[in-house]
Design a protein around this nucleic acid. Structure first.
Length: 494
RNA sequence: GAGGGCGUAGCUCAGCAGGCAGAGCAACGGACUUUUAAUCCGUAGGUCGCGGGUUCGAAUCCCGCCGCCCUCACCA
């Protein structure tokens, strides 16, 4: 019993065998000297018979459409740069190559020697003189007209989605350019890029549940990092004065349009700076990315247009809280009353935990930005230095754009005695895994040797790329987002 | 984790007041040396996500499960 899919595959396998009988390798090999299709399309065109006057070219790509018309065949060949029509005539390519054409399917990879010109109808075309079979595709490709519509099918066949969905391919390329640009920008300012461990005996630096794995030789459990912070700060102690890392972090939490279990963070630390230093740096860096797009500083994102012209709005946490919640966040009684008004269950919670909930639920989604929110309640920021004059307030800011938290920065806490204290203090009302209160003895020890006062910054690269490419979901900017494996029932392949 | 929606041929989708499972593209055979979603003639292609139930009869109604999407909750 064969399924239809197996029959498609069998048909294509038969053609593969025929190619072998013609003495050709159905999996191709080295093929050099071909031009990017986009380049070919811009070559000059001579008047007259293209087979005679057309400039000789060599191209390679995937067969996207195929029109057989007796002794002549038209096909569209696509490479990374574009698409072009190829005309294959029996008389012009000779019997050997003509026999090869009987073995062609949509999705095969083909190399073509020919002359560049126009058909009678004006279509830019490579008029083939020689064919080079490069790779057989054994499975049928998506509909040539509609492409892939089914979201799940696209997610489970990302390689196909990238062929047939040019927007997705564009976004992937923009991500690469933007990350390269961030590196260039930071390097040019003298920041040094480093790499720190992903596997850690203790996952610190953020409030998140880690993934656990196991090292066999040492027979110990290890955690995948949830942040880059604690190692980069050790490097401040080590004398790296301007240091950063762009790396994958892993958080064992929910998946949503804004969250993937692994994502890419930029973290940066600068000795003798503070959160104001970081604010200026952040604005300059992201603005530079906006300019790289070359679409001006007003970016249309969904229903809104955000203005990135500097200077960006800077507003204090206290101010926003008062404006949207209606009370001062340090007014304990008022905060609990407000919580009741907004229907938040506050049993067993400390005031500042309630403040945090209120801010997230009432204020955050109203922040289209770009806007810097600064000066946070200190008890929520155990790694942050407090204001000298106001120990209740931490020198921290977050940058909001398009309703998303894009950056987070502190004046770093470099006092080991206070740090040890905040690690010990577990905020009531926060579940264990959401707490940052995890003692890291070695980190405290490092601080005791003396970490310079510093500013620190974290930017979610995926979200930055979302904003800059106008992507509503994080899956659009991650090539292979995590999916639950599909359970296989019986013979079904999907 | 909670609520809602979706799952039919390789792909895109009809069919769902219960009554023989359909179309376009793709595939297979044939005609065609200027087509471009080529056209024309012909052929084949299905565990209707999986499992159970109701019924003379289920793609269609009911229950359970799986997967994806959306909204909400948590983390960036």
């Amino acid at each position: 019993m064969t399924t239809p899919l197996e029959k498609f595959e069998a048909d294509r396998l038969a053609k593969l065998r025929r190619l072998e009988q013609l003495g050709l390798d159905p999996w191709g090999g080295r093929f050099e000297g071909h031009l990017p299709i986009q380049t070919v399309r811009h070559l000059p065109i001579q008047e007259g018979d293209p087979f005679v006057v057309g400039q000789p070219v060599r191209v390679a790509g995937r067969i996207r459409t195929l029109r057989r018309m007796g002794r002549i065949i038209f096909l569209d060949l696509a490479d990374a740069t574009g698409k072009i029509q190829v005309l294959i005539g029996q008389r012009q390519v000779g019997e050997q190559d003509w026999a090869l054409c009987d073995c062609l399917d949509l999705g095969d990879l083909l190399g073509v020697d020919g002359h560049f010109g126009k058909t009678k109808t004006g279509e830019l075309t490579v008029f083939a003189t020689r064919l080079h079979f490069l790779t057989k595709s054994l499975l049928p490709h998506p509909d040539k007209w509609s492409g892939i519509e089914d979201v799940e099918f696209a997610l489970r066949h990302r390689y196909l989605d990238l062929i047939y969905n040019p927007e997705l391919r564009e976004k992937a390329l923009w991500r690469v350019r933007l990350v390269a640009h961030v590196r260039e920008y930071l390097n040019s300012l003298g920041y040094v890029e480093v790499e720190t461990p992903v596997l850690q005996t203790q996952a610190g630096g953020a409030a998140a549940r880690p993934f656990i794995t196991h090292h066999n030789a040492l027979d110990i459990d290890l955690y995948l990092r949830i942040a880059l912070e604690l190692h980069l700060k050790r490097l401040l102690v080590a004398g790296f004065e301007k240091v950063y890392e762009i790396g994958r972090v892993f958080r064992n939490e929910g998946i949503s349009p804004k969250h993937n279990p692994e994502f890419t963070m930029l973290e940066l630390y600068q000795a003798y700076g503070d959160y104001q230093t970081m604010m200026d740096l952040t604005e300059g860096l992201i603005l530079s990315c906006v300019d790289l797009l070359g679409r001006g500083r007003q970016l249309p994102l969904g229903d809104v247009t955000l203005d990135f012209s500097p200077p960006w709005k800077r507003v204090s946490y206290a101010e926003l809280f008062r404006e949207h919640v209606g009370v001062d966040w340090q007014d304990t009684q008022g905060v609990f009353q407000a919580a009741k008004r907004f229907g938040i269950d506050t049993t067993g919670m400390e005031r500042d935990v309630v403040v945090h909930y209120l801010f997230e639920h009432v204020v955050e989604d109203k922040l289209q930005g770009p806007v810097f929110v600064y000066d946070y309640p200190a008890s929520l920021c155990p790694l942050t230095k407090r204001k000298r004059s106001h120990p209740e307030i931490a020198e921290r800011f977050e940058l909001y754009i398009w309703g998303m938290e894009l950056a987070n920065a502190y004046t770093e806490l470099n006092d080991p005695l206070t740090q040890e204290e905040t690690f010990r203090h577990q905020l009531a009302g926060l579940p264990e895994e959401e707490s940052m209160a995890r003692m890291d003895e070695d980190f405290i020890k490092a601080l005791k040797y003396g970490m310079p006062p510093a500013g620190g910054l974290g930017i979610g690269i995926d979200r930055l790329v979302m904003v800059l490419t106008g992507s509503r979901t994080i899956r659009d900017v991650i090539l292979f987002p995590l999916l639950r494996p599909e359970k296989r029932d019986g013979e079904r392949t999907h």
